[in-house]
Amino acid sequence: MSDTLLDVQRLQVHFPIKKGIFQRTQGYVKAVDDVSFTIAKGETFGLVGESGCGKSTTGRTVMNLIKPSGGQVLFAGENLSALSPKEMLSRRVDLQMVFQDPYASLNPRLTVEQILEEPLTAHQVGDAAERKRTIERMMEVCGLNPAYLKRYAHEFSGGQRQRICIARALILKPKLIVADEPVSALDVSIQSQILNLLQDLQQEFQLTYLFISHDLAVVKHLCSRVGVMYLGRMAEIGAADNIYTNPLHPYTKSLLSAIPTADPRQKKERILLRGEVPSPANPPKGCAFVTRCPSAKDICKHERPRVSKVEDDHLVACHLFT
């Protein structure tokens, strides 16, 4: 992969836990703990996992909204966290984000025009007339009627709002879009509209997506490569085909089996996980998944598995495969 756009190297994000009257740091929530992946130009990389696994934190750290505690995020070869705030502001043209909740991510006090104009004014793109043309064009591209320019965000339905969010992210013609669960708040029929839109836009603008989702089916549909996260760590990473047809990590296996399929005739073997995800403030000593793993061995309790390559573009962090 010569055209690497984003290179996340051993990323760590730790949040201090403060307790007591003196607000002493009592420990750290290891929201992201040693996560590495690369995204090539033009590809869609899916990051899946359950809530609290650190996938959203990873996305925000890639956006440099959160400073990493360790490791680095290289965007087009540049270490983002080493940039000054001013330099970072100018880099944001190439890095945009679409958030999960289309209701919360639009300021209810602004009109669509004001919302879409904000990135343009922030980066001083064009004059007023030019901006207006850009906004109208972008609305059309995203399937919004430009006649709605003066309307407030709260008048739109969820799907339309998400279109506005996508338009806002796209208006600066970025290279990478971090999409944090962009369809999970939407209804099925709207979800497919947005997924199609994302696909169309990728072709039109040669976009690269970091697609964060808990929905494995959506990720399978959209992504060429997938990373499965569990408790702040990368469990399995590789080409989507490899992961879905040949899941190796016990967590990936159970995750895939847990998805309900819209087919009552297909009764499948289900690997039911017992128990809950441990707290990221106090993760197990060895493998993060050891508390729920059906095939845990002794070594899993003591030693953290390293990410190892099993086949071409298929890496897994599990003692079963080392």
């Binding site: 029929s189 497919s192 997924l195 199609n196 089916a217 959506v218 549909h221």
Partner: peptide
């Protein structure tokens, strides 16, 4: 029919999803 078709399937790879246009 539209609802069922617009769910991304785990078993077959479609290039595009079927989608019901418009809103409720």
């Amino acid at each position: 029919c539209g609802l069922l078709e617009s769910i991304p399937s785990m078993h077959e790879k479609k290039h595009r999803l079927f989608s019901i246009g418009g809103q409720v």
